[in-house]
Design a protein around this nucleic acid. Sequence first.
RNA 1: UGGGGCGUCGUCAAGCGGUAAGACACAGGAUUUUGGUUCCUGCAUUCGGAGGUUCGAAUCCUCCCGCCCCAGCCA
Length: 558
Amino acid sequence: MENTTTTISSDFIRTIISEDAKSNKNNGKVATRFPPEPNGFLHIGHAKSICLNFGIAKEFGGTCNLRFDDTNPSKENVEYVESIKKDVKWLGFDWEDRMFYASDYFERIYQYAVELIKRGKAYVCDLTQEQIREYRGTLTEPGKDSPYRNRTIQENIDLFERMKKGEFPDGSHVLRAKIDMASPNLVMRDPVIYRIKHEYHHRTKNEWSIYPMYDFAHCLSDSIEGITHSICTLEFEINRPLYDWTLDTLEVKCHPKQIEFARLNLSYTVLSKRKLIELVDANHVKGWDDPRMPTIAGLRRRGFTPESIRNFCQRIGVAKRDSLVDLQLLEYCIREDLNRIAKRVMAVIKPVRVVIVDYPENQVEDMEAINNPEDPSMGTRKVPFSKILYLEKDDFQENPPKKWFRLAPNQEVRLRYAYYITCREVIKDEETGEIIELRCTHDPETRGGGSKDGRKVKGTLHWVSAQHALKSEVRLYENLFLKSESNELDNDLNPKSIEIIKDCYVEQSLANSKIGDLYQFERQGYFCVDHDSKEDNLVFNRTVTLKDTWAKIEKSQK
RNA sequence: UGGGGCGUCGUCAAGCGGUAAGACACAGGAUUUUGGUUCCUGCAUUCGGAGGUUCGAAUCCUCCCGCCCCAGCCA
């Protein structure tokens, strides 16, 4: 995997790990894991975790496992497993032969539960869900012991075995760790570690009627895999005592160190799985890979590169304080990458017909255009020029404001790689007053876009030749949400998050573009070919606009 | 009101007792056949607040204030 940024990032997690490595803890080995639950698509927040876990493993010469935390069959399925694998790979990371599932360990985890019972540290409880809640107490009051807390070991073993055999209905019994109902940490008040679920599991099928809870399965899975550092997000900090209690009580050989960091929040979007699922289910977006989604699949379809996302993850850093990262940083990262690699091309999104009145009727000239000024090795291409063109409607104003460099009556501008032209006449629809055609003259001495007399032309406009251009569809995206934070699906969705424009014209050379190809439409932004694109109807997604200094000037003039 | 965590520029984020890195954003200016890119310049006398220790504190101590997480048989 290439990485052009060589900055050595040092965050508190890397500091801890490097100290452990130096003191030869775990024999100097470093083993991490990325443990998604396959109940949704990965998003940019997961990318932060992926970059962290795989990144650390690589930096310390260790390993990072991919492990599906599939302990709840009611929420998980294979579609999500496949999407997660695809996304991690696409981001540029490799778990080699280390792809695991918590469900791989169900038998061992079960045996650990039996062991816990034998050590007098777990019991089968018959309280209902509501009763368990009541017995748990509150934040300020201690809980009270379950009447089933002191069953004999034999009784517990028998009951737990019958739970496993499927003799009891869902919800009738649970296995609980016997810890301390008065603990100020609610997680430690005899947490449920196994529940009955007569449910089909996407991997173990109908083999199990009981499934371990996260707190029990996760630490043991880590331990089984020989993980040295178990990195998770802040909300699990409160679960750490239970993580440690379980491994200590069972006296396992491998006891990983859990370290928590702050999850990513990004402005103008949502990153909670609940809200993301809701967006998809309520059809606010067209699926998990809708280009407006902050999912890896959405970003990929939008035109983001893995490199730009990795770079973003490096720039945001890792710490323990809650934060809200500015979406503009993500945009900066993708512009930075695309500026380097995207082929320049001309496309007119909102066209106005322009006739060069003094240009020969049937003449066509091939103008030479540079493919990428940042990378001369990308070469040049020919762009056909002729008498009738399309220009961007917004590049003309009849009564231009101050500092307007673009086309206006009697104002000369340069057509990129072509000629200087001057607008002589504005043709309007007699009824609507809408501008339907601009008539311009050109200076034949300026072929290619330069003049011998050194005369200055302030504006340079993109254009396409009407008879050569390809009619195509462009989808413009804006932020999915209106507010920088705390967005709710009911009121805060941006109604203008997508604008589909069907009558766009792109230059001829785009005819053989392929799905996923990335371009810069000069002066407008970066675009990629969507997978809805067909040979006779090209579809482009706008990844991000170019920085627009004029828009700022215009805004400040108002 | 119990417990756990966190507070350094608009947003991220270094800093770990020796006198506030960097990035994004923002504001100027230069170059430019993309009002793009690039390049300069500016942008925290101050680190949630108040005391204290010290020759010296963002860093140590005390108290206070604010924000986040926990009462799923979710993860």
